[in-house]
Simulated scan of single mutants.
Amino acid sequence: MTIWGRPALWALAVVAGAGAAALTGVAVWVDLDTADRVASVCGAILALVGLVVSLAALTCSAQGDTPDISVGSGGLVILDDVDRTAIGEGSEVVGSLSTARPATGRSTGRLKLRVSKGGKFFRGVVRDSAIGYNSKRRES
């Protein structure tokens, strides 16, 4: 949760509680017809506020959400699907190659990437692979 998220949720809870108490007070001390009208107006205003908030969320830039990935020496990062793959020193994949159509990679967008010497980074679908020192792929 962002730094302002928790206080905003508490403020929203307090405002909602105060609104419910105010509508209850109008219903008790004025009359039910007036409370109905006030609740209708409040509901319409809240619907418009919700529309504005949802449109703002849709149009916000996601630049702050850029992933920061660091791969150290000997490290491995695979940013999408892995299928029929052995990972590690001396690993081995035995069997016929997959006949299934490769899935399309879902990883889109920008990222900050640092790969040290000896590190490995894969972005996309990794299928029927042996990754690592002394690793091999062979038919059965």
Rank of each mutant, 00 (worst) to 15 (best):
M1H: 07
T2D: 14
T2P: 02
I3T: 09
W4V: 14
W4I: 14
G5V: 03
R6N: 06
R6Q: 04
P7Y: 01
P7T: 06
A8M: 13
L9A: 09
A11T: 06
V14A: 12
V15P: 02
V15K: 02
A16V: 13
G19V: 06
G19E: 03
A20G: 12
A22R: 05
A22C: 06
A22F: 10
L23T: 01
T24V: 04
V26T: 13
V26E: 00
V26N: 05
V28C: 02
D31P: 09
D31T: 04
L32E: 15
D33L: 01
D33A: 05
T34K: 00
D36M: 04
D36A: 12
R37A: 14
R37E: 08
V38C: 01
S40I: 07
S40T: 13
C42E: 00
I45N: 03
I45M: 06
A47K: 08
L48I: 08
L48H: 07
V49L: 13
V49Q: 04
V49F: 04
G50R: 15
L51W: 08
V53Q: 08
T59G: 08
C60R: 14
S61K: 11
A62Y: 01
A62R: 14
G64H: 14
G64Y: 11
G64C: 05
D65I: 00
D65S: 02
T66H: 09
P67Y: 11
I69D: 06
S70K: 14
S70E: 14
G72E: 05
S73K: 06
S73Q: 10
G74K: 06
G74W: 11
L76I: 11
L76Y: 09
L76E: 00
V77H: 15
V77L: 07
V77C: 13
L79C: 12
L79Y: 08
D80P: 15
V82A: 00
D83H: 14
D83E: 14
T85A: 13
I87Y: 09
G90K: 06
G90D: 12
G90N: 11
V93D: 03
V94Q: 10
V94E: 11
V94G: 00
G95D: 12
S96F: 05
L97W: 02
L97D: 05
L97Q: 09
L97S: 10
S98V: 01
T99A: 11
A100I: 02
P102Y: 10
P102F: 12
P102D: 15
P102C: 11
P102Q: 15
A103P: 01
A103I: 01
T104R: 06
G105V: 02
R106Q: 06
S107T: 08
S107I: 00
S107V: 03
G109S: 10
R110H: 09
L111Q: 07
L111D: 04
L111E: 11
K112Q: 12
L113M: 12
R114N: 12
V115G: 12
G118L: 01
G119Q: 05
K120S: 07
F121I: 02
F122L: 03
F122M: 03
R123V: 02
R123M: 08
G124Q: 05
V126R: 13
R127I: 00
D128F: 08
D128T: 10
S129C: 13
S129T: 07
A130V: 01
A130E: 01
I131S: 03
I131V: 13
G132I: 07
G132C: 09
G132W: 09
Y133P: 05
Y133S: 11
Y133N: 07
S135Q: 08
S135A: 15
R138F: 02
S140Q: 05
S140Y: 03
